[in-house]
Design a protein around this nucleic acid. Sequence first.
RNA 1: GGAGGGAUGGCUGAGUGGUUUAAAGCGGCGGUCUUGAAAACCGCUGAGUGUAAAAGCUCCGUAGGUUCGAAUCCUACUCCCUCCGCCA
Length: 429
Amino acid sequence: MLEIKFVIQNLLIVQKALSDRGKTADLEVLSQCDARRKTVLLELEDLRCKRNTVSDQIAIMKKAEDNASSLHLEQLVAEMRDVSLRVKSLEKSFAEVEEKLQGIILEIPNIPHITVPVGKDSADNPVYKTSGIPRVFDFAPLPHWTIGEQLRILDFERATRITGARFPLYFGAGARLERSLINFMLDMHTTLHGYTEVLPPFIVNRKSMTHTGQLPKFEAELFKLEGWDYFLIPTAEVPVTNIHSDEILDETILPICYTAHTPCFRSEAGSYGKDTRGLIRQHQFNKVELVKFTTPESSYDELEILLKNAEAVLKALQIPYRVITLCTGDMGFSSAKTFDIEVWMPAQGVYREISSCSNFEDFQARRANIRFKRRGRKGTELVHTLNGSGLAVGRTVAAILENCQQADGSVVIPEALRPYMGGVTSITL
RNA sequence: GGAGGGAUGGCUGAGUGGUUUAAAGCGGCGGUCUUGAAAACCGCUGAGUGUAAAAGCUCCGUAGGUUCGAAUCCUACUCCCUCCGCCA
């Protein structure tokens, strides 16, 4: 959420940010509401002040029990009865205009950072860096779903029987590969990169979803629990960022770095027909997430570090990837700047997103009321929040299957992962 | 599911209708003393909004209600704790 005061004072900046994103918002109505809010509040505070002072007077008079002033007292009480009614009616008007204001401001996306390239969609995302050289195959590489089914470690058909389309079902070495990757990633981030491991709830309330920006605008993307105002998490970002909502943190404990493995649930509304095969686009998938809370002045340095921490996983697995900077039109609602890591998928011959690392600046912190206090300074400031996938686990399995496949149909396990696989060096039938 | 207790500032915790603008302690900041530190002592110290700075206003789990006036009384809800039952 942007600060209303900032939006009112910088209408042109916000207008440009919106159009760069290819979005619109009713800023006209917003400034009207803000003006009305001010008028109502002014009158309301005036009346409340009067009520407070006269009520104190009444208290003093009652204590004095001065009979001579009892008539005057009755008059005052009668007058205050009227004032009180007007206060109530103004409070109602205030609440109404405030609600309208909140409704608008909650649906305005974050302002892209100055370094974010302006562009319309994913075609305009510039490459930030490339790592590793795609392997040259002396046979036609198979897509991961074919490899997985041939090795009998993935079974999409039976998964459909259990639930429906777009749910995963792993067997044997496949299930173990997924589990190994989760442990491998968590171990790397906790021991090498200084993150604290967290195991959060997989179901959150409406407030938490609003804090991180999934709501109120994107409810269609979420799975909601019937009979509850609870949702399945689409990413660990939601529960982990909300760990510190409504808190005032001490400057000295920043940055706070958390890593968490959770399953993620997405309805993938509007994605019918996209990536219908394989592990790329599922309603349920595992992800290891990285979340940071930082001071405003360090958040962009921390974003670079976060990105490197995520990259380190693919580097260790020796799988080629590239990093792109998302342009204004392709960036998520809450983000000020996002890097996507895209892993090489040889069967399709394309790079596919496997991680998304973002700095939200104070956008989520303002919604979630996450502040920090500097030593020896009055007042509080909003923290900056960041997060990134480190990495999407299902997609990593897909990348390993495709990049490490052999002519005989087997898949060689990357060396770094072998200790987690009980020393297994390759998956064969 | 049944019974009872509770929710107050960064933390602990007093406060059952009005000159209390929420006591006190801890923590934090500053000072005195000291070569330095600790201890002791003194002072300052909730969050927002608003202002040039003030004043003012809001906030005692949330939402309503009663009242001239509510942390305090009433109603509903949420969450937490204890005990019983069930249970991985």
